[in-house]
């Protein structure tokens, strides 16, 4: 019998290496990455535009200006109509489902790749980290673009409704009017949109990636999409 070296423990990779691999993967898969990111952008743009539009409505109503179109018939005492709450909740749901779906698809079509990486000696944690980084980056950039587009949309709509008055009373910062509802302000709405997009993208991608990484490689590689 020859001497038998015991099997050692696999080492952790330096963070830079994971960063490099994940960016390379995003770059080469550019077209596919853009489509996934666009899914995030659309979801967040929808949410932010509805929300900002609502903020603008409240701000201008506070200032005593009425929309030339909306008559605020349904306005409650708090100043937010149930219709608006309904719209925001709906857009939030569309956004969550849309992002979760596009991330899920993007990971599922890469199960084979996950299995292959594990064959070559990747630790489960490394695989998850790779997807965390990729989806975090996609989530943040997609959500930022989406939030800006959404705001732009809401501003254009506001201009149509209120004309240039919009800019005098633009609810940029959080405000607490004496006898009105708390206003988050557009900056906070954009921030919430960015963070939400990123969190949703990261969860939507890391969870299936973690499940795939836990599978024995043979099973991960058998998965057909």
């Amino acid at each position: 019998m020859q001497q038998r070296t015991p099997i050692e423990e696999q080492i952790d990779l330096p963070f830079v290496e994971s960063l490099r691999i994940s960016f390379q993967s995003l770059k080469i898969r550019f077209g596919r990455s853009i489509i996934t990111t666009a899914g995030i952008t659309l979801g967040i743009a929808f949410l932010v535009s509805v929300w900002t539009n609502n903020e603008i409505g409240i701000a201008l109503q506070e200032s005593g200006r009425q929309s030339t179109i909306n008559t605020f018939e349904e306005t409650t005492e708090q100043g937010i109509s149930t219709k608006d709450i309904w719209l925001i909740v709906m857009s939030l749901i569309v956004c969550v489902v849309g992002i979760a779906n596009s991330m899920l698809m993007a990971v599922t079509e890469r199960f084979r790749e996950i299995g292959t990486m594990k064959c070559l000696g990747a630790l489960d944690g490394f695989v998850v980290r790779l997807f965390l980084l990729e989806s975090g980056f996609q989530g943040f950039s997609g959500a930022l673009i989406g939030a800006l587009l959404g705001t732009l949309g809401a501003v254009l709509l506001g201009l149509k409704d209120y004309g240039l008055d919009l800019f005098f009373y633009f609810p940029l910062l959080p405000a607490q009017p004496e006898n009105g509802p708390m206003q988050l302000g557009v900056i906070v709405v954009i921030l919430i949109g960015c963070i939400l997009g990123m969190i949703l993208a990261v969860i939507g991608s890391s969870f299936p990636a973690w499940r795939a990484a836990k599978l024995p490689p043979a099973e991960a590689m058998r998965t057909e999409v």
Partner: peptide
């Protein structure tokens, strides 16, 4: 009886796999 880390190291150092469908990473 090997830990997850040992199995990863085993796949990395002790064995080389060749598959019917090559299983190359197409992004690299």
């Amino acid at each position: 009886q090997l830990s997850q880390r040992q199995i990863a190291a085993f796949r990395c150092h002790r064995v080389g796999y060749i598959f019917q469908s090559y299983n190359l990473l197409h992004v690299r």
